[in-house]
């Protein structure tokens, strides 16, 4: 337990001093501010592009559009940033050899995995929470509040998808060596999931639904029942990925 606490503190210090915490917070806060503004300004932006006297009939943006924009930004750019920030989550420590002396000091390997997961989870959750709060505030200020069904469920889905990415990164880094191979393997896995979406009938089970159906859930375009299935599948995948990381890392030659 003392190993977990000490290593967890080290992880947090590392995120702060490597500027990773700063970047993640800034980027997500910017998304939280930008999405409502973009939604608000969309008609102006589009009308400026409508040259040759063609007038586009753009409906007035609403509360939904603001959150639609938010989910679009976070599920694409946000997840990309998440991948970059946590891409070296275990790989860097392993490839540089910085873990060797600590393991020789008696640091338990399970503590390494759990502390890394806990620190990444906290950083992701904090950044996401800031983004959501600011998004909420800006949206309330700029738009009239509308009843939004399943908004919190949608937000929860994207948060869970972030955790899914973190655990897949962690698992990939225990499986393959090299400073960035964990990142590559995870990107490949996500690519495979995207390809799988084209197989009819599979999309409702895919964790990707958690990052793609968020806006649809609010407007009723996506099936809530399917989304709940995807949530459970993702939870199972997260737990399994963590278990695999713990087992594989325990048996790894370092």
């Amino acid at each position: 337990m003392s190993g977990f606490t000490a290593f967890f503190k080290k992880e947090i210090v590392e995120y702060l001093r490597s500027y990773k915490a700063l970047i993640l917070l800034c980027v997500f806060i910017i998304f939280g501010m930008m999405s409502p503004l973009l939604a608000k300004m969309m008609p102006d932006i589009l009308s400026h592009q409508a040259i040759n006297g063609i007038t586009l009939n753009i409906p007035k943006p609403t509360f939904y559009d603001s959150f639609g924009q938010f989910f679009k930004n976070l599920s694409q750019m946000g997840m990309a940033v998440l991948l970059l920030i946590f891409g070296g989550v275990l790989s860097q420590d392993l490839s540089k050899g910085t873990l060797i002396m600590l393991l020789a000091k008696g640091l338990s390997r399970h503590a390494v995995i759990l502390a890394k997961f806990a620190a990444a989870l906290i950083l992701w959750t904090a950044s996401y929470a800031f983004a959501v709060m600011i998004q909420w505030g800006y949206t309330l200020y700029l738009f009239d509040k509308l009843p939004v069904p399943h908004l919190f469920f949608s937000l929860f889905c994207l948060w869970l998808f972030g955790i899914f990415i973190l655990t897949i990164l962690l698992m990939s880094s225990t499986l393959v060596g090299g400073a960035y191979s964990g990142l590559f393997l995870t990107t490949a896995a996500l690519g495979a999931l995207i390809v799988c979406q084209f197989i009819p009938g599979t999309d409702r089970f895919s964790p990707l639904a958690l990052a793609s159906d968020n806006a649809g859930l609010m407007t009723g375009a996506a099936n809530l029942h399917h989304a709940v299935t995807a949530v459970w599948i993702t939870v199972i995948l997260i737990v399994s990925a963590l278990a695999v990381s713990l087992v594989v890392f325990k048996k790894k030659s370092i």
């Binding site: 210090v13 490597s18 050899g97």
Partner: peptide
């Protein structure tokens, strides 16, 4: 056991004191 590798790799963003504190906390 105390172990010293050929090229010891540390966390470059720490000071010596911080690193030893981390090691001390790990060994209890």
């Amino acid at each position: 056991i105390g172990y010293l590798p050929d090229v010891p790799e540390f966390y470059g963003y720490m000071t010596a004191r911080e690193y030893l504190k981390l090691c001390g906390e790990i060994t209890g």
